[in-house]
């Protein structure tokens, strides 16, 4: 964010779906088809220990990822404590914990290769 004489210009907030890189989301959907079943109910984020103590929303991160927005994911995924409460409450059987582990692995591989 830039600051000009007291005015700030924020980054564009709009999700530009055409331009966004959705390859990580595609990989996840292939690897774990149950993640396609999320309906965004928020059960996972409501029970999430990390989310109750810090700025961390596993539901939203998952949805952002599906639109090709991975910045927040990179910044925040480490907050997860892998306790697994989220998957216990999911009404759609999304194995969120396994999903997080998969994403961890992919992101660190990407970082390693770059």
């Amino acid at each position: 964010m830039m600051n000009f004489w007291g005015f700030s210009i924020a980054e564009a907030r709009v999700i530009d779906y055409d331009k966004n890189d959705k390859s990580l989301a595609e990989m996840l959907a292939e690897e774990m088809p149950t993640t396609r079943l999320c309906i965004g109910c928020g059960g996972c984020s409501a029970t999430c220990t990390a989310g109750n103590l810090t700025e961390f929303n596993i539901r939203k991160l998952q949805m952002l990822l599906k639109r090709g927005e991975t910045k927040d994911l990179r910044d925040q995924l480490h907050k997860c404590m892998l306790c697994g409460k989220c998957l216990l409450v999911c009404p759609r059987g999304v194995d969120t914990r396994k999903m997080i582990l998969f994403l961890f692995r992919q992101l660190s591989e990407q970082d390693h290769n770059s």
Partner: peptide, 12 residues
């Protein structure tokens, strides 16, 4: 708007 994310969305 992708209301579950809380951001406007555009696509073709």
């Amino acid at each position: 708007e992708d209301t579950l994310i809380g951001k406007p969305l555009k696509m073709t």
